[in-house]
Design a protein around this nucleic acid. Structure first.
Length: 531
RNA sequence: GGGCCGCUAGCUCAACUGGCAGAGCAUCGGACUUUUAAUCCGCUGGUUGCAGGUUCGAGUCCUGCGCGGCCCA
């Protein structure tokens, strides 16, 4: 370039546009072509293994340094590292998270095989290996290949194995790469799987039946949230992605399924944040004959079961409300992080009414009977309110602004106002409030439940109040759901319902501060199609 | 939707008030039959997210756009 600048000036881009590939990618394509030229399929159809690498590690766990077993295995995996290039080379083969070293010796593999390993195989390729299980002098369990086959040629280089893949966007968009490079990512999703399993086990142990109800709803319901709209061509009608399975599940209770749960996705067309993904996983359950006390007991049992499945009940979580601490990341690099703070899931979860929490936070003996006073308290604490808000919404506003973030250890907030609880049963002995509770941990909501409203006439009145709010411009307010009302009119037993946010629970139990870290493919804007 | 920040080689990151776009790892060539962040020698590799503008000169300054992050609504 420096000796002939005119060449690039005349025709910039020819060198790259000819292939459009980086040197590394072009080389790998050349190697694929070379394999094909030799009649070797770089993407063969099958490779019958005798052992997974985890099985190899388990079966040959206690060998002495330098051991030669004479045992031959057929294994497969992705080559994730390679060193040495002469008559002896080493590789790291990884299969389902377990790595075993390849001890690639020309004596065992032959000249041609050795040439394949050093000249045709790249880090990132899937390999099939037949070879002897052995241990090196340094004590590393290894396989000495007698035969070595490319099972899937990688055309793109892997990110750096040591520095990993740091870019949050790439990690989310190309989760497969994140999983290859960052062992922590694999651990997080293994924990997620264990948590889901634990939640199901706990529900089944308690006699609940898992069901699947529609995700395409003619009318969105069961929560106050903006829905996604889609369209069915044959029916020529709009459908909504469900914002909650609640109303269908309660219809099953009407039908006599006395303990049901659904563990699956719901969708809310709202802002995204470190704690909100447009599609999210919720465990929702309904138990006939029970009330909010049973609901809280269930929620507590589920959280404990999940925590035990992935560790202990004594956990820590980054305290985003505390001053950041400087963390030494490497020689020179430092980073600021929130300090870890203990969270105890061991003690029985506390229970406090919303009103008591607001009274404590404000130091004032407020009540639901004096709207003017509540407005004044809001103003005093710089909490915004709307003129159409009743006492319930005012108290809730104070709670959200002044209290929520302070609830670090698990606590059930009880007695939610009727005004913000259109599906919950009124409190059996108190005005203004319902038998509704929410579970808070580390300053966030994790669960929401209540003794269900089972009186169809009361339910109709609440729906109509919601519909009126919708008419007045509240596009999160509910619709009147006639099929649900009809079901209720057939008679609904006393029932307690519970919804548990699974993504947030996984965050809590893995220490993740962003929901994107616990969802394999979080919602992102589409990639620009240029690449 | 608003504010702030980020986008540089395959990956991780540099580049002072505008002055020749660099390093480590990976890749490539060479040496090496017990390495494991292998080591040693040598060399490549760039549309600085995109499009404009200012300037003798832009990774750097200005405008718009794209994607992402954090905070706020």
């Amino acid at each position: 370039m420096s000796d002939d600048p005119a060449a690039t000036a005349d025709d910039p881009g020819t060198a790259t546009s000819a292939s459009g590939l980086s040197d590394q990618m072009a080389l790998r394509r050349d190697k694929v072509a070379a394999l094909r030229a030799e009649g070797i399929d770089p993407h063969p159809p099958v490779w019958p293994v005798t052992h997974s690498l985890a099985e190899v590690r388990a079966e040959w766990a206690d060998l002495d340094d330098g051991a030669e077993t004479g045992d031959e295995v057929t294994v497969a995996g992705r080559l994730v590292a390679r060193r040495g290039q002469g008559k002896l080379a080493f590789g790291a083969l990884r299969d389902d998270g377990t790595e075993v070293q390849l001890f690639v010796q020309v004596n065992a593999l032959g000249e041609d095989g050795m040439a394949t390993f050093t000249d045709v195989v790249d880090v990132g390729d899937w390999l099939g290996v037949v070879g002897e299980v052995m241990v090196t002098r340094r004590g590393e369990l290894s396989i000495r290949p007698r035969e070595l086959v490319v099972l899937g040629k990688a055309l793109r280089p892997l990110p750096d194995q040591y520095y990993g893949l740091a870019d949050v966007e790439t990690r989310s968009r190309q989760r497969e790469l994140d999983l290859v490079v960052n062992a922590d990512t694999r651990r997080v999703f293994a924990k997620r799987a264990a948590i889901l399993r634990a939640l199901r086990d706990e529900m089944v142990d308690r006699g609940f039946v898992e069901v699947e109800t529609p995700m395409l709803h003619p009318i969105p319901g069961g929560a106050t949230a903006r829905p996604f709209v889609t369209h069915h061509n044959t029916l020529d009608s709009d459908l909504y992605l469900r914002i909650a399975p609640e109303l269908y599940l309660k219809r099953l209770v009407v039908g006599g399924m006395s303990r049901v749960f659904e563990l699956n996705r719901s969708f809310r067309n709202e802002g995204m944040s470190p704690r909100h993904n447009p599609e999210f996983t919720m465990l929702e359950s309904y138990q006939a004959y029970g009330d909010h006390e049973d609901g809280m007991e269930l929620a507590e049992g589920l959280v404990r079961r999940a925590a035990e499945a992935v560790g202990t009940l004594a956990i820590t979580y980054p305290d985003r409300f505390a001053d950041p601490v400087v963390v030494e990341e490497s020689d020179a690099a430092t980073d600021e992080q929130s300090p870890l703070r203990d969270v105890s899931l061991e003690r029985p979860f506390a229970r406090v009414t919303m009103l008591d929490l607001v009274r404590t936070a404000t130091g004032l003996d407020v009540s639901y009977d004096d709207v003017e006073e509540l407005r004044g308290v809001c103003n005093l604490n710089e909490v915004a309110w709307e003129p159409d808000w009743g006492a319930g919404r005012l108290v809730n506003g104070l709670f959200e602004e002044l209290v929520e973030e302070t609830l670090w250890d698990p606590v059930f907030v009880t007695e939610y106002p009727v005004e913000i609880s259109p599906l919950a049963r009124r409190h059996r002995s108190k005005d203004h409030v319902t038998e509704r509770f929410e579970l808070f941990v580390v300053g966030r909501e994790f669960a929401n439940g209540f003794s269900e409203l089972t009186d169809p006439d009361d339910q109709r009145d609440r729906f109509e109040a919601q519909a009126a709010a919708r008419e007045a411009g509240d596009d999160e307010a509910m619709f009147v759901d006639e099929p649900y009302l009809r079901a209720m009119e057939h008679g609904m037993p006393p029932t307690v319902g519970l919804g548990l946010g699974v993504d947030r629970l996984v965050m809590l139990l893995t220490g993740a501060t962003s929901i994107r870290d616990v969802i394999l493919f979080p919602t992102l804007r589409p990639e620009t199609p240029t690449s």
